Every structure is written in C-alpha cells, then in structure tokens.
Amino acid sequence: MTPPDSESLRLLVLVGELGSIGAAAAELRISQPSASKRLTRLERQLGLDLLERTRQGCTTTPAGEMVCGWAREVLAHVDGLMNGVRALRAQQESKLRVAASMTVAEYLVPRWISRLREALPEVHLELDVTNSAAVTEAVRHGQADLGFIEAPDPPEGVSVRYLTGDRMIVIVPPGHPWSRLRRPLTAGELAATPLIVREQGSGTREKLARALAEAGATPVAPLLELSSTTAVRNAVVAGAGPAVLSVLAAATDLAENRLVEVPVAELDLRRPLHAVWRSGLQLTGPAAALLATAVRVPD
C-alpha cells in the first residue's frame, strides 16, 4: 500500500474539524469537487470508509477519527521538517563562499565586499585566497559559490563573466641595473634572467610564460618561487631580484619610489580578469549581488 500524501491527510483533518468538505476546500484554496475526489481516492487507497457524508455536512467515521489522529501526528512532523528546511535555506542564502586569485583578492575584492555589505549587511562571507587554478576547481566542485580568476584564458567547465582588464609589468628596486636602462628591455633579456615568480597554477605566472613563448623566448629557472603576490612584491622591494606582477600590486610602491617599472619591448602582458561559477547554475541572492558589484565597480 502506498502511503497517502500529506495534502490529502491535511484535507481529511480539516474536514473532521470543520464538518464540511466545502469549508475544508476553501481553507486549502482548492475547489470542492477536487477535494471530494481527493478524499474518495484517499479512502480507496487506505481501504477504509473515513467520512459519513450527509446533507448537513460530513463527520468522520470511527475509523476516520483514528486516521485523523494519526494524520495530525504525521502532519506535525511534516510541518517541523519544512520549518527546519526553510531555516536551513535562509541560513545558506545568507552565506556566501568566494574564492579569488591572489591579485584580485588583495586589490579588488575588498572594495567589492565593502559595497556588498552596504547593500546586504546580514550576509556572512567566506573568502578563500588561492591561485586561479585552485579557484576554478573550487567552483567546479561546489566548494565556492563564486570565484574570481586572472588566468589568461577562460577555463572550461564553468560559467564565465568578463570583469575588466589588467596589465602586468616588470618591476625592480631603484638600485637595480634595469632601473637605469635608456631603452626598453627585450623579451629575450627578461627570459634569460632568473625572476621571482608565483607558484605553478598562478594566473600571473601562466600569463608571463605564455607572453614569453609568444615572443619566442624560453625563460630560465626562477630565482625564487613564492605563493603570494605580496611575498613576491616584498622580495623585490627588499632587493632580491626582478619580478613581473600586476600593476595593481605595484601601484603604491611605484608612486612612493620603492619600485621602478621597466618597459619591455614586444611583450604583451595584458590579461583579462573573470568571474566564474558552477556551470549551468544561475546565480541568485548574495552571489548575484557580488557579481553585479564586481561588474559595476571593476577597479
């Protein structure tokens, strides 16, 4: 025997309480003929006569009274279940998991989050700062609701939205020989010099490698490999060696003469910044609001 559905049980309980199929139907906002058919189907399903139908209305039979008592218990559990589900959904909808690559996380996301908090102060936001490859994987596997990456090409298997462009530059401390060059550095000279670089999987490192390859230059082994944009910038400021970073990361140090930008000839270091989220999923709630903020206030 198939268990009855909760709405049929709710209808039966209302008929028993109100003494009328019409009144119960009105309470549930269904037509009286539809309610009558549902009750008849319930009686056939259970193999019991549940209602005594008269011109004055309906009363429950002894069997119907017992079934109504059990139905009230079932419905109380169903209502408790649905209240719990609604509470969980409300909690989830007020929580936003974001993953962002280093440059975007350090220099753009804080401003976007500030704007989001002004509009939705109740949102609890978790930010995972990692490299572009890890951001994409987190989005693919549902570990992040929204991601921001700086990889040169939009990744496959996720939904992608272009945000803005970025420009990478060669940076050295003021005393470095390149800071006194009277001509642009060549791609070959840059490739032949050990650089301070980000780790594998970084969008910054991937873009540099691709730009050098397009210029026909093969880079030598790195001088240092560091896992954050800030660590790379600090190492250059300390005089450890040259690096290639986003102009976003170097802007303050350039303005305060702690770093010098070295022009490079015939090397395209421009790159796009993208938002990514799980393929086939339509963003709603805080995730959609944060994306709209990032598109509206890119830099």
Rank of each mutant, 00 (worst) to 15 (best):
P3D: 07
P3F: 00
D5P: 03
S6N: 08
S8F: 00
S8V: 00
L9H: 02
L9F: 02
V13Y: 00
G19W: 01
G19N: 14
S20E: 14
S20F: 04
A26S: 14
E27M: 07
L28W: 00
R29H: 10
I30W: 02
I30R: 01
S31D: 14
S31P: 11
S34I: 03
S34H: 13
K37Q: 15
L39G: 09
L39S: 07
L42F: 00
L42M: 03
G47V: 01
G47R: 02
D49E: 15
L51C: 05
L51Y: 00
R55V: 12
C58S: 15
T59N: 14
T59P: 11
G64N: 02
G64C: 05
W70T: 13
R72C: 15
V74Q: 04
G80Y: 06
N83C: 10
N83K: 10
G84Q: 06
V85Q: 12
A87R: 05
L88M: 13
Q91C: 07
E93K: 01
K95Q: 15
R97A: 10
V98M: 04
S101W: 01
M102F: 01
T103Q: 05
V104N: 07
L108T: 02
V109Q: 12
P110M: 06
L116Q: 01
E122C: 04
H124Y: 12
L127H: 03
V129S: 10
A133S: 14
A133V: 08
T136A: 14
R140L: 06
R140W: 06
H141P: 08
A144V: 06
A144C: 07
G147W: 02
F148K: 00
E150K: 00
A151D: 15
A151T: 14
P152H: 04
P155D: 12
Y162S: 11
T164C: 11
I169H: 06
P173L: 08
P174Q: 08
G175W: 00
W178K: 01
L181A: 04
L185V: 05
L185F: 04
T186S: 13
G188P: 05
E189T: 01
A192P: 11
R198G: 10
Q200V: 08
G201K: 03
S202K: 02
A209R: 06
A209M: 12
A211Y: 03
G216K: 09
A221W: 05
P222H: 05
L223I: 12
E225C: 01
L226C: 10
S228V: 06
R233F: 02
A238M: 12
A238S: 15
A240C: 14
A240K: 14
G241K: 13
A243N: 10
L245G: 09
A250S: 13
A251V: 07
T252C: 05
A255C: 12
E256F: 09
N257I: 07
E261D: 03
V262D: 05
P263K: 02
V264C: 11
E266P: 03
D268C: 10
D268Y: 01
R271N: 07
R271F: 03
V276E: 12
W277F: 09
L283D: 08
P286D: 13
P286H: 13
A287H: 10
A288P: 13
L290F: 14
L291N: 03
P298H: 03
